[in-house]
Each structure stands twice: as structure tokens, then as C-alpha cells.
């Protein structure tokens, strides 16, 4: 094995109780993502790809199997440690952007650092530097409602990267964007990957997935091929 593993999922299960029936969103998923890799997870809706991402992000706990991110076994972490995992080890980008409208863009980007205990001046400086790197300097002091969809998602990516995470997780990041903005965003992911960032992207769109280094497919909570 050349590079250490960023993500190591083995026989991962996530079962929901729905009334009397149970639904398995993940029914034994095994996946390894190397450090520095750009992996796309593809599958139709309901295939369990978002659940997989949420488990890796530490937003959801698996009901079976093992999951290691950056070598840490997430099933052994308590709520407090899981919060630290979310703030330091992973950066998450959502389809719905999920920025806080009452804060300025730069404050949104700096938010994870606030919860990590970084001082205000330092975290705002970091956020500004990152926004500059993503070509968003001009928008740093704006409110989120003054931004276009493409800009919002760039700001969200900046927020996901502000803690220098081991892995960048993106759940349908282009889902709310038009094709031009979507293409620009994918170009940004490729650029970040070229700079060494590990990226795990979930999409149902084959043209987006085609940009990744490697594509894995899911259906009914399982890996296919």
C-alpha cells in the first residue's frame, strides 16, 4: 500500500427501524479511500451513498461494521469526540450549502474554528486567506443572501477546508447549481485534489463522477461491480 488510508470502512451497516419493518441504508459496505485520492460515490437516490458520507462525517453512527477515518475508529468515539472529529478531521459540503444567513461570509467560513477554540483574529485571517485562494475575496464581507449559488457553494467549500481536514466530503455539491456553476465547482474540486486534498464526493450524476480519479457505485446499500 503506497499511501495511508484516509477512510477505511468494513462491512458497514446502518439499519433504520421504520414501524415494524427495518430499512438497511447501508447493508455491508466496504470501502477504502487512500490519502490524496479523489473518489466519487455514484448511485441512484436511496442507494445509501449519503448515509455512507454521513457516517464518515460522524453525523450518523453505524449499526454494524467498522469505520476508520484518518486511522481513528469512529464507533469508539463519544459525542464530544465525534464533534471534535467533525471540526478537525473532516470538512463537509452539502447540497443545500447550509451557511448561516445572519453571519458574513468570512464569519461562516471561520465558524468551525470558533468551535475548535481558535481566537477570533486568527480564525478570520485564516478564513480570508482561504477565500482568497478560492477566488472569493470580494465576497468575504457580504451576507450570504447577497451571493449567487455558485458563490455560496464556494464559501461552503472554504468553510469545509478551514480546519485543514484530512478529507473533504461533498454530498451532491452541484445539485443546486446550474451547469456552468456546477462545472466550475467540479473544476475547483479537481484543483484542490491536484494540490493534494483527499476528496470523497457523492453524486447521482455520471458526468460529475467522471471527473474523479475513481468511481464506486452503490445500489440498495451495497457496493456494486
Amino acid at each position: 500500500m503506497s499511501a495511508p488510508l484516509a477512510v477505511e470502512a468494513h462491512d458497514l451497516e446502518r439499519v433504520y427501524a421504520s414501524g415494524t419493518a427495518t430499512v438497511a441504508a447501508l447493508a455491508g459496505v466496504t470501502l477504502a479511500v487512500r490519502s490524496g485520492e479523489f473518489v466519487a460515490v455514484m448511485g441512484p437516490s436511496g442507494s445509501g451513498k449519503s448515509t455512507l458520507l454521513n457516517v464518515i462525517a460522524g453525523l450518523e453512527r453505524p449499526t454494524g461494521g467498522t469505520i476508520r477515518v484518518g486511522g481513528e475508529d469512529l464507533t469508539k468515539l463519544d459525542e464530544q469526540a465525534l464533534a471534535r472529529h467533525r471540526s478537525k478531521r473532516v470538512g463537509m459540503v452539502f447540497q443545500a450549502f447550509n451557511l448561516l444567513p445572519r453571519y458574513r461570509v468570512v464569519e461562516n467560513v471561520a465558524l468551525p474554528l470558533a468551535f475548535a477554540g481558535t481566537g477570533r483574529a486568527l480564525r478570520l485571517a485564516k478564513a480570508r486567506a482561504l477565500l482568497e485562494r478560492l477566488g472569493m475575496s470580494a465576497r468575504a464581507e457580504h451576507r450570504t443572501n447577497e451571493l449567487s449559488g455558485g458563490e455560496l457553494q464556494r464559501a461552503a467549500i472554504a468553510r469545509a477546508l478551514v480546519s485543514d481536514p484530512a478529507i473533504l466530503l461533498a454530498d451532491e455539491p452541484t445539485g443546486n447549481l446550474d451547469s456552468a456553476n456546477g462545472a466550475a465547482l467540479i473544476a475547483l474540486f479537481k484543483e484542490l485534489h491536484a494540490q493534494g486534498q483527499t476528496v470523497l464526493l457523492v453524486t447521482h450524476d455520471a458526468t460529475i463522477a467522471a471527473h474523479a480519479e475513481r468511481t464506486v457505485r452503490m445500489r440498495d446499500g451495497r457496493m456494486v461491480d
Binding site: L59, E79, Q80, S87, M92, F94, L99, L111, F115
Partner: peptide, 16 residues
Amino acid sequence: TREIGIMKAVGAAPGD
């Protein structure tokens, strides 16, 4: 509620 979700997603601890 949504804001709480976002804060937790970006690393806010339950105590925060």
C-alpha cells in the same frame, strides 16, 4: 433547529 444542525455539523460540541 437548522442552525443547530449546521453548527453541530461543523464541529460544535453538545456542550457548546
